[in-house]
C-alpha cells in the first residue's frame, strides 16, 4: 500500500458518513424482518458489520479503534451464541424438544412479531454475526495497521502474551 495515501480524504469521508447510517439501517432491517422476508440474521449481520469497514475507510484505524471496542465485541459474539442456545433451550424447559417454538401463536401472520422463538433466535444469530464479522474485520484492519508507526499506538492486543510484553515495555 502506498504509505503517502491520505486517509482523511474529504470525498471518501463524506461518502462514508452518508453510507454508514444506510448500511446500519439496512442491516438491522434485514435482521428484524428475517422471519417474514428474504434474508435473515446472518445476511443482516454481515450488512451491519460492513459499517466497520466504512468507518475504517473514512477515519482510518484510529477512528475505528476509538469508535469500537474490539475486546467487548469479541465477548458480545459469545453472548449472541449463548442467547441462541438459551432460546433453543426454552423448548426443553416448556416440556418439548430442543429448538421447539414455544411462542408460536404470537401475533398475526405477516407481522414482524409473529413467529415467537424463531424471531428471537434469528435476532441472536444476527447479533452474533454482526459482532463476529465485525470482530474479524477489525482483526484484519489491525493487522494492516501494524505497519504504520503513526497508527500503531491504537493496535489492540490479541493475545495475553502481547499484552505482557507491552506491560514490560512500559
Amino acid at each position: 500500500m502506498n504509505k503517502k495515501w491520505k486517509r482523511d480524504d474529504l470525498i471518501v469521508r463524506s461518502l462514508a458518513d452518508s453510507y454508514l447510517p444506510i448500511a446500519l439501517v439496512l442491516g438491522f432491517y434485514v435482521i428484524l424482518h428475517g422471519n417474514i422476508s428474504p434474508g435473515g440474521g446472518f445476511q443482516g449481520g454481515v450488512l451491519a458489520a460492513s459499517g466497520v469497514l466504512l468507518l475504517y475507510l473514512g477515519y482510518g484505524f484510529k477512528g475505528v479503534a476509538t469508535a469500537v471496542n474490539m475486546e467487548r465485541m469479541h465477548k458480545l459474539e459469545a453472548v449472541g451464541a449463548i442467547a441462541y442456545v438459551l432460546f433453543a433451550m426454552l423448548g426443553i424447559f416448556c416440556g418439548y424438544n430442543f429448538c421447539r417454538n414455544v411462542l408460536w401463536d404470537s401475533g398475526e401472520i405477516g407481522d414482524v412479531w409473529s413467529s415467537g422463538t424463531i424471531a428471537l433466535m434469528n435476532y441472536s444469530v444476527g447479533f452474533k454475526v454482526l459482532t463476529g464479522v465485525g470482530f474479524l474485520l477489525l482483526l484484519v484492519i489491525a493487522l494492516l495497521a501494524t505497519g504504520e508507526d503513526e497508527e500503531h499506538s491504537g493496535t489492540i492486543t490479541t493475545t495475553e502474551h502481547e499484552e505482557l510484553e507491552r506491560g514490560k515495555g512500559k
Partner: peptide
Amino acid sequence: VIAIMTLFVGAFLVTL
C-alpha cells in the same frame, strides 16, 4: 442434545 450443547455453551462462556 444437552451433552453436545453443554460443550458449545462452555466454549462461549470461556470466551466471556
